[in-house]
C-alpha cells in the first residue's frame, strides 16, 4: 500500500502538472478536490481517470463515479487495491 501511495503521488504531480508541488508535499489523507487540499477541478478528474486506466488498467465510465474514489490519495489507493486483478 505505501509503495502504491508514493507512486500515485508521483503520477499525480506529473500528469496534472502540479508546479511547485512535490510528491512529498501531498498529504495522503487530505482532499484532492476543492479548497483545503490540492484544489483540483473537473478537468483533473478526467486526467485521473486516464491515469488509472493507463497505469492500473482500471476503467471508470462515468466521472460521477469518481467522486468518492478520488477523495484523497488514500481512497484512490484503496480503490486500486480492491479492483486491480
Amino acid at each position: 500500500m505505501e509503495e502504491l501511495i508514493s507512486n500515485l503521488k508521483v503520477q499525480l504531480v506529473e500528469s496534472l502538472n502540479l508546479e511547485d508541488v512535490t510528491p512529498a508535499d501531498i498529504d495522503t489523507e487530505a482532499p484532492l478536490f476543492g479548497d483545503g487540499g490540492l484544489g483540483l477541478d473537473s478537468i483533473d478528474a478526467l486526467e485521473i481517470i486516464i491515469l488509472l486506466e493507463k497505469h492500473y488498467g482500471l476503467h471508470i465510465a462515468d466521472p460521477k463515479e469518481g467522486k468518492d474514489i478520488f477523495y484523497s490519495v488514500r481512497t484512490l489507493a484503496e480503490y486500486i487495491t480492491a479492483n486491480q486483478k
Binding site: 500528469s15 478537468i43 478526467l46 486526467e47 486516464i50 486506466e53 493507463k54
Partner: peptide, 9 residues
C-alpha cells in the same frame, strides 16, 4: 484511445 483532455480544452 486514452487521450488527455487538457490539450484539447
Amino acid at each position: 484511445r486514452l487521450l488527455n483532455p487538457t490539450s484539447f480544452i
